[in-house]
Simulated assay, not measured.
Amino acid sequence: MDTNEFDWNQTLREQWEWHWENQIRARLTGLTDDEYFWSPVPQAWSVRPRGSSTAPVQAGSGDFTIDYAIPTPTPAPFTTIAWRLGHVIVGVLAARNAVHFGAPAASYDEWEYAGSAADALKQLETQIDVWLAGVRGLSEAELRTPVGSKEPFPELPMAALVLHINRELIHHLSEVSLLRDLYVHTHTAGSGSTE
């Protein structure tokens, strides 16, 4: 194989795009508000109406905030689907889209978190589209360029960040899928659920 003709950009994107189109997107279809906010354990971190959280930090600029603490407690609190989607939307995608692809500035403190599953999925789709469009536009030279001081490991090339984001998306959205399975199996007639 001639590596000069190999499309590294396409190969990096396909890792996530295949997973998104063939596994995750369909698993998110029909997400309900009950599932979105459901907490299978007491005191899980979530996205909550402003002023209703007891977490040490309630980040967000809108009607809903995300639970947080600095430093993160050990062990880290369990997190709901709402929290996990908020993390993916803001920390994994929107902040990177702003730094690397000219999208509006984004941070946990300034984000308007979704108060419904439908709104969260719209935010997710938007940020994924921005990320993929940005990555699609990178040349091979840009994929080799260090990411710079806005990232925790500034010396790593952009290709390493793309792989990291792929892993984060696959990891956290698979967790969301598992929580949906758990919800279904604990909220059906005869499941023995106490809720």
Rank of each mutant, 00 (worst) to 15 (best):
M1V: 15
T3D: 03
N4L: 14
N4C: 11
D7Q: 13
T11A: 06
R13G: 10
Q15N: 09
W16H: 03
W20T: 01
E21H: 03
N22F: 08
Q23K: 13
R25C: 02
R25F: 11
R27D: 02
R27P: 03
L28S: 05
L28I: 14
T29C: 09
D33P: 09
D33I: 06
F37T: 12
S39M: 12
A44T: 05
W45M: 00
R48S: 05
G51C: 08
S52T: 09
S52Y: 12
A55V: 00
V57P: 06
A59Q: 15
Y68T: 02
I70P: 05
P71V: 10
T72M: 15
P75Y: 11
A76K: 12
A76C: 07
T80S: 10
I81W: 03
W83Q: 00
V88L: 08
G91T: 05
V99C: 04
P104W: 14
S107G: 06
S107R: 07
W111S: 04
Y113K: 05
Y113S: 04
Y113P: 01
A117M: 04
Q123F: 08
E125P: 00
D129F: 05
V130N: 04
R136C: 10
E140I: 13
A141Q: 15
L143P: 07
T145R: 08
V147Y: 03
E151W: 09
E151T: 12
P152D: 13
P152I: 03
F153D: 13
L156G: 07
P157Y: 06
A160L: 07
L161F: 06
L161N: 00
L161T: 05
I165W: 03
I165D: 07
N166E: 12
H171D: 12
L173S: 03
L179I: 06
R180V: 05
D181H: 09
H185D: 14
H185A: 15
T188N: 14
G190K: 07
S191G: 14
G192A: 09
S193Y: 15
T194P: 02
T194G: 01
